[in-house]
């Protein structure tokens, strides 16, 4: 039997995690271009899964399990989410998506004798 105070804590963490995940999903639909849309899932949904992992870690401790799998998922998600977000931003820049930075200026032409002006 889980005590009442821990149940309140689990309920708060689950509510916050679900809220942030839902906010991330809404932001993914409501933002205008790809660079704005990168914000919503990479921050809000990562925070949401973090809160849910805290809740399930509390539940595991109340059952008497150590909760190593939860800790492993936390470490993995929090290490890999920024990496994949950065790679997605690089891909959006390379593909010249709308809302990105302007393309770099063209390099100066090379003269026939090999010197640049």
């Amino acid at each position: 039997m889980v005590s009442q105070a821990w149940e309140w804590l689990i309920a708060g963490c689950v509510l916050a995690g679900t809220f942030f995940t839902f906010v991330g999903a809404i932001g993914l639909n409501r933002f205008r271009d790809a660079f704005q849309r990168l914000h919503a899932p990479t921050k809000a949904s990562t925070l949401g899964i973090g809160m849910l992992l805290i809740a399930s870690m509390i539940a595991a401790w109340q059952e008497g399990r150590p909760g190593f799998a939860e800790l492993l998922i936390t470490l993995f998600v929090f290490l890999t989410a920024p990496v994949s977000a950065s790679l997605l931003a690089q891909a959006a820049i390379r593909r010249r998506c709308k809302g990105g930075p302007p393309p770099p200026p063209a390099p100066p032409p090379i003269k026939r004798d090999g010197s640049t002006p």
Partner: peptide, 8 residues
């Protein structure tokens, strides 16, 4: 990510 949190 959301499927993993749904499983949690």
């Amino acid at each position: 990510l959301n499927a993993a949190s749904l499983l949690l």
